[in-house]
């Protein structure tokens, strides 16, 4: 990634306190095009807070926030709940912030993440996995240069999880966006990320996934996941499931298909 000198956005020595409590201390990071930076860390480590500071939703007490002028950002927030009393279709939701009505763009974005069939449905009727894809479609609508994802895998089942991260990675090659994300799905993230940043109010360690997963600070926080526990479990499938759970044949049957 060091070959590209364009930085999409960066944080330098960010500090944030709530009263006496230190939320963040001396956090720095840079996001590059076509590169995935993943924040991992225990609950309450300040991962979402880092994203919000980068997005300009929170103002830090110390440090510098820089975004490329005119940077187009797509954002998938962590908590999304739509009140049952608000009648809104998926189609309307995706295009909600378009200045001019543009059904073609909404459909194109929905097609990219494979949710065309959901467009006429009510947002409240979506399952966790469907909702995350709909949020992704909205984030992609604006042709973002930077995609900020706050736990995109929440509420998604194991099969869907693998597909979701593959989708984010495949579209990265199409659009050339940079990704900054928070994730708890360590085993899946490690395979699909260029750089990992382990956060616990300060930066414990950072670097390439392989290096980070051997770092003592990482091992202290998460334990050694490699030999046992959540090791990657490879097996063969003779079919897969579409969005409605129906059995469909594999697109490419001679290819090995692995799940975490």
């Amino acid at each position: 990634m060091s070959t590209t000198h364009t930085v999409l956005a960066k944080l330098e020595h960010i500090g944030l306190n709530f009263g006496q409590r230190v939320i963040l201390h001396d956090v720095s990071l840079e996001v590059y095009p076509e590169s995935v930076l993943t924040l991992i860390g225990p609950n309450g480590a300040g991962k979402s807070t880092v994203l919000k500071i980068l997005l300009g939703l929170l103002v830090p007490d110390q440090g510098l926030v820089w975004r490329m002028p005119g940077l187009r950002i797509g954002y998938v927030p962590q908590k999304f709940h739509l009140d049952r009393l608000l009648p809104l279709t998926v189609e309307r939701f995706i295009g909600l912030n378009l200045r001019r009505h543009n059904p073609a763009a909404v459909r194109a974005s929905a097609a990219e993440v494979g949710i065309q069939d959901l467009l006429p449905q009510a947002v409240q009727s979506l399952s966790g996995g469907e909702l995350q894809r709909v949020l992704l479609a909205r984030a992609l609508l604006n042709k973002p240069q930077l995609l900020v994802l706050d736990e995109p895998g929440q509420g998604v089942d194991v099969t869907g999880l693998n597909e979701l991260y593959q989708l984010i990675n495949r579209l990265k090659q199409v659009h050339g966006y940079g990704v900054l994300m928070v994730s708890h799905d360590l085993h899946l993230v490690m395979a699909a990320t260029d750089q990992v940043l382990c956060l616990n109010r300060h930066i414990c360690c950072s670097g390439q996934p392989e290096a980070v997963s051997r770092h003592p600070e990482y091992l202290r926080l998460f334990g050694d996941l490699r030999p046992s526990g959540l090791a990657v479990y490879t097996h063969h499938h003779d079919h897969q499931h579409d969005m409605h759970g129906c059995v469909v044949p594999l697109p490419d049957t001679d290819k090995e298909h692995s799940h975490g």
């Binding site: 997005l55 300009g56 939703l57 954002y75 608000l86 909600l96």
Partner: peptide
């Protein structure tokens, strides 16, 4: 109407999108 609806659906998402 549009910005108000947008922030009623999700305020932070709306803000990131320029509302």
């Amino acid at each position: 109407w549009r910005p108000l609806l947008s922030l009623s659906v999700h305020a932070e998402l709306a803000q990131v999108e320029g509302v």
